[in-house]
Every structure is written in C-alpha cells, then in structure tokens.
Amino acid sequence: MTGPNPSTNIDVAALVRETLSAHTSNVSSASTTSDLSIDEELNLHAIGWEPVQLVSGYSVFSTPLGLWSWGQGEIVAAGEAHASAFRNAASRLCGEASAAGAHGVVGVHIERSIYSTHTEVSMIGTAVRPIGAGRVEPTRVFASDLSARDFSRLIIAGWEPLGLAVGASFVYAPRRSMGAVFQQQTQNVELTNYTEAIYSARELAMDRMQRSAINLHGSGVVEVKIVEGPMTFASHAVGFAAWGTVVRLAGATHRLLHPTMVVSLDDAEVLFDAANLE
C-alpha cells in the first residue's frame, strides 16, 4: 500500500454519535430510490453525478408459431422480435428516466428470454444525472449496462457512454440428408451445417451491433456480452446475440489513471456479507 490516506483522521465513532443524536434534521427534501450500493453512490458523487430514480422497461413480442421449425437461412421475424423488444424496453427505460429528470441510466440489468412463441426483454437500472442538472429529451438519455463504478471510472478517464448497442440473429441450420446422417453415424465429423449456421448468425448479429453503435456516433463498444448456441426449443435453429455499451471520448484526450499495485490477502472477492446469516 502507498502513502497516508486523508480519511484516516476522520473519527468514525464521533461521527456516528453525532449523526445519531442529530437525527431530526433532514437536509434533502425529494425522495429518491436507487439500486446503487453506497460505494457506487459515492463513486458517482466523486465525479459530480447523483442517482435520481430506480427505472425499468419491459417488452414482449410475439413470434409466429412454427417460425423456428422450418425454413432456411435467417429466421428474420425472430431477429426482428429480439430487436424490437430490446428497443422498446430500452426506450421505456429511458422514458422513465427522462420523466424523472435524469440524463442517463447506469447499471442496467438486462434479462432476455426467448421462447418459441415470444421474446421478452426486461431492463432495470438507476437513472442518474450531473448533480442538480435539468431535464433532457428522452432521446438524449443514455442507457448503459456498465456498473456505476465502471461508469465513474470511464468518466474520470475522459470517456462518455452513449447508449446500448445490440445485434441478434437466428439462423436455421439445414437438415442433413438421411444418407449423410446414416453414413456419419459411426464417425467423428464436423457438423458443417451447424458450423455454417452459427457463423452466419454471428456475422449478422455482430454487424447489427456495430451498425447500432455507429448510429449512436460511438467510437467503440465496451463490455460486449455474447450469448450463442442452439435454441433449446428448436432442434435446427441456432442463435447469436451480442450487446454492450457504446462509448466515445468526451474530451480531447484520454486521461491515464496511474493505478497503484496492491496484494490482497482475501481469498474471495466478497468475503463478508450480512446474507451469510442464512
């Protein structure tokens, strides 16, 4: 560890005593709700931002029955349902944030479920703004799945998030002929029909994600999550989805953080938690 920490001279016990005795005064007036931990709230505050409200967005899109079980090439309607559900959930999330007077939503927790007949997307996050800032248009509110901690670091380093980029594609893998199935039964062979399908889904999905990032005038996408593989409910369909936070340099240059190296003697990331009581 390095040099002395300014906070070492705070007398916590005296502070607690004082706080608990002066319970009556209440400085703030507006009730706010946030899913940020105190660490994250302090991190936000350190860059001059504050939490405003817990916000959510939800959408579910129906897809035609039988869509997944026959056809060839891309399953266009499935990709559309995914894109529309994602877009509507995000715009409702940003709409709530805008109504609450926020400039963006951080730590967005995204849940996607894809079934044979419908695709749903749920988003929950905390709306934030620069302390005391006024309202902006819903279209200018950004959503980001970066944690408040990562968001603060990004800002400190001179970058800004612009929104979520997403791309998904579902592709039908052609069935192999009965003859091929029979011949290959005892051999080790690559199932080229699946490999080709997943490649084609990947290219389409990544391209869509990149295009949505470019539409937001971003210079990059960070923390891209990827979910790919066969669809559990349809034997010949494969899917590929990718999403992440679009960022761009806000100022002229990137600011370096110059981290200190530490050695930790903890075995786990979070060792101590009241939930251990259970």
Binding site: S59, V60, F61, S62, T63, P64, L65, S84, A85, T117
Partner: peptide
C-alpha cells in the same frame, strides 16, 4: 399472441407483434 398463432392468423407474412396486455402487467 402468447401461443404464437395470432400473428400468422391475422397477417400474411410472418412478423412479430408486441403483446400489449403482458407489457402493461409488467
């Protein structure tokens, strides 16, 4: 819509439709 039959029943080309009642409940 939940059963996936609404879309193909009311339209000619397969496409997706938002299920308003479920969205409202959530």
């Amino acid at each position: 819509l939940m059963g996936g039959s609404g879309v193909s029943a009311w339209s000619s080309s397969p496409s997706s439709t938002e299920i308003d009642q479920i969205v409202r409940a959530h």
